[in-house]
Design a protein around this nucleic acid. Structure first.
Lengths: 211, 211, 211, 211
DNA sequence: GATGAATGAGAATTCATTCAT
DNA sequence: AATGAATGAATTCTCATTCAT
């Protein structure tokens, strides 16, 4: 969706532009984010932004897409997932996210913000595809769980999914908040707090969904 | 927080102004909401808005406050709550919200949007007080539950709260979505679907948190 | 120039309105002075101001006129002046102004501000008449002085007037500044400082203009 | 104090903008001066003004600063001044000002207006520094005069300064008024009138301050 | 391709003045 | 006569986007 000009740029500049955009969007929201400021932070001229993208909206969309693709690559690499247990899925996801958060706080927060609808319809549009994929996958896990007998079968799959999502979303946000406050050099103690949080949640999930 | 002039207005006009504002904010977000449009919808002159509020931001804040107070009054009236069970609390809350949604879809959606952070820091500021109150209350219910033996005591109260909130928030949004799509004249069947949703969730909550 | 309505008011209210106006004009200048604020300070409704005056400009003009008339009355009462010496005139004027300043700092400062052109063409218009009268009088004194031999006759009357005005204006401002800083209860010492200032100036005037 | 953008402009455009601003401010005062009009006169777009300055106030400040700096350069060039006599100082200053007035009536009038407080606190702020410098210099001349015996020593330096300033300010305004009315092509006769005015004033100053 | 100055549509805000009660 | 809510013209300021260099 960016113009060809953008693709021809060297990776470094591309990344600078996108990260500047994300920082600015996160800091001020879409409307109040200034193209000039984005350009400045990226070390390029304001006009250049318009050589790369048709308009601010397109830059926003692409910054979201880019972020999600970044995660997809990582997640793809990390999760063989076939026949994984829902609980393990959740656990592994959280652990990854925690690691990721230390490495890429900006991107993690950005994707969360978009996912939670903080950018309104704009963000959801860009996000919807990924969302659908994740949901599909989770439903598969739930179906598997039922078959294997690790998940109660008296409730509808959709309902179990809602439950699962509710718990994991909230929990992930909690972890993010914690991790953010530890930001630089999380101590062993803090790491354990996070671990504990995750285990408790799995316990709740398991007990709630289990038969 | 509005100017005295606003308070002296007759109820009808006050409400028209606030509802117009809420509609506009919901439709376009804070930044893109136009004061002129709000005034027009309310049937007053643009300048009048500035006789009532110092600026757009103040109008926004007050529209949120007003919405929340509207709910508080209703909820106060409906919930004696002393020694209520967490599960019942949730159930009763949801039922109320469902009723409310039919009566006041605009306000319910608005408060949800604010609560979920869709208006960014702006909204959270206005909302934070109410949020704290709700949380406190829920913590009390959890503590009670533990004493009475209806809630497992191997987990921290804070963690149980996170679980509780995660499930209920998601669930409420689901209910809202359903209700919105039925909007006018929900059939018996649809009503049952909602009922079922609520019961399932209580079951999940109970099993997850119960001992 | 005010409407009949204004003249029918009791003295107290008239004065409150005018003084409020003057305060506001002095504090913020004509453009930024708010009619609402003037009304509020005077304890009347904004609309009432428009029952008294056609518009803000008229209120301003009248406040200037009123101030000048206030001074005229006092000066008339105090100066029999026939055949007075220029130096005595100056001295007496200054002394009066000093006394006045303690009693009516607002009005004195206001008239000075108007006279010095701080209200632009607006103020000068209202002031011009009084200015002409004062100048005429001073020219007469100068002519007298020449006849009596107390003023050098090698210079033009107009030039001597310019000199006289330059010195007295500056000097009066100096006195005003001093007096303002002493505002409440000027001590004996401070009074002497003012006295000294006045005498020095007369000496300079006398020596400069004298033969 | 202007933004970098302004500094990068070519001299011609910079000057057009500043002169337009000054014209507009002089014609209508700060409050009623319209940014749009300034831009129009300068032949640039309204928005451009805001690329150059943060707001109208900043434009005003800079227009004053620029004017004063313009004079400083000229005056620096013209006055070696070491050990100059107060009277000569005055005379030279006036002559310069007269010349300047023919060349730059707009700037001279503007600086006078600012100096005389016609722009209220706004203008004085920008002007105060220069004012202090001038005053300091004049005090030095007075002290010198006393030492050399050309100035009476029975009066305080500060008082003599006040006298000096009062006379020169008024006189300069008189010269300005005259010059303005002759504007283009002052005849020999008119020039003599001005000369005469200056000489008379020096005589008055000398006699007043001399021993 | 890069740059950054120029543009102007668009929105918020102000406040003198009007006018119904 | 008094009041104060209503009005909208007028102005400042913002910033995405264009375009000449």
């Amino acid at each position: 969706m960016p113009k060809i000009t953008f693709n021809r740029l060297d990776e470094d500049k591309k990344e600078r532009v996108l990260r500047s955009a994300i920082e600015e969007f996160q800091a001020h929201g879409f409307e109040r984010a200034k193209v000039e400021e984005i350009a400045h932070k990226a070390g390029v001229a304001k006009g250049s932004i318009y050589q790369y993208f048709n308009d601010k909206k397109e830059l926003f969309f692409y910054s979201v897409t880019w972020t999600l693709e970044y995660f997809m690559k990582i997640i793809d690499r990390q999760t063989p997932l076939k026949d994984m247990d829902v609980y393990d899925y959740f656990l592994s996801g959280s652990r990854e996210r925690f690691e990721l958060l230390k490495r890429e706080p900006l991107l993690v927060e950005y994707s969360m913000a978009v996912a939670l609808g903080k950018y309104g319809s704009l963000g959801l549009e860009a996000y919807s595809e990924l969302y659908r994929i994740g949901e599909e996958y989770e439903l598969k896990l739930i179906a598997n769980g039922k078959k294997k007998g690790t998940i109660r079968s008296d409730l509808d799959d959709k309902i179990l999914l809602t439950f699962f999502q509710g718990v994991t979303e909230k929990f992930n946000m909690e972890i993010m908040d914690k991790a953010k406050s530890y930001r630089f050099e999380p101590t062993e103690e803090q790491f354990l707090e996070i671990e504990n949080l995750m285990k408790s949640m799995v316990s709740l999930l398991k007990q709630g969904m289990g038969r």
